[in-house]
Simulated assay, not measured.
Amino acid sequence: MNWETLRNHFPDQWVLFEAMEAHSDNGRRLVDRISLINKFNEGKDALHEYKLLHKTEPSRELYVAHTSKIELEIIERKWLGVRI
Rank of each mutant, 00 (worst) to 15 (best):
M1S: 05
M1G: 11
W3V: 14
W3L: 07
W3I: 06
E4W: 03
T5Q: 02
T5C: 00
T5D: 01
L6I: 08
R7A: 07
R7N: 03
R7F: 00
N8P: 07
H9Q: 10
H9Y: 08
H9V: 12
F10W: 11
P11H: 10
D12M: 06
D12T: 13
D12L: 08
Q13E: 14
W14N: 09
W14Q: 14
V15H: 04
V15C: 09
L16I: 15
L16Y: 07
L16Q: 09
F17S: 13
E18C: 13
A19I: 14
A19F: 11
M20Y: 04
M20S: 12
M20C: 14
M20V: 12
M20Q: 10
E21A: 02
A22E: 13
H23C: 14
H23F: 13
H23A: 13
D25C: 08
D25K: 12
G27K: 01
G27C: 10
R28W: 07
R28C: 14
R28Y: 10
R28Q: 15
R29H: 15
R29C: 15
R29N: 14
R29G: 13
R29D: 12
L30C: 15
V31R: 00
D32R: 01
R33H: 08
R33I: 06
R33Y: 07
I34T: 00
I34D: 01
I34W: 00
S35P: 11
S35Q: 09
I37H: 04
N38T: 13
N38A: 15
K39A: 06
K39G: 02
F40C: 08
F40L: 05
F40K: 03
F40H: 09
N41G: 12
N41Q: 05
G43K: 07
G43Y: 03
D45Y: 03
D45A: 11
D45W: 03
A46I: 08
L47M: 03
E49A: 13
E49Y: 10
E49G: 11
E49W: 06
Y50T: 13
K51R: 10
K51F: 04
L52Y: 01
L52A: 10
L53R: 10
H54C: 02
H54V: 06
H54E: 05
K55S: 15
K55I: 12
T56G: 01
E57P: 01
E57V: 05
E57L: 03
P58V: 08
S59Q: 10
R60V: 13
R60T: 14
E61S: 05
E61Q: 05
L62V: 09
Y63V: 15
Y63R: 10
Y63G: 12
V64I: 12
V64H: 06
V64A: 07
V64M: 09
V64L: 09
A65W: 06
A65H: 06
A65L: 10
H66G: 02
H66P: 12
H66T: 11
K69A: 01
I70Y: 01
I70H: 03
I70W: 01
L72C: 04
L72T: 03
E73Q: 06
E73C: 04
E73G: 04
I74E: 07
I74H: 02
I75M: 00
I75V: 05
R77L: 12
R77M: 06
R77I: 15
K78I: 07
W79E: 07
W79T: 08
W79Y: 04
L80P: 12
L80A: 02
L80C: 05
G81S: 01
G81L: 08
V82N: 02
R83F: 05
I84K: 02
I84Y: 00
I84N: 01
I84T: 04
I84C: 04
I84D: 09
I84F: 00
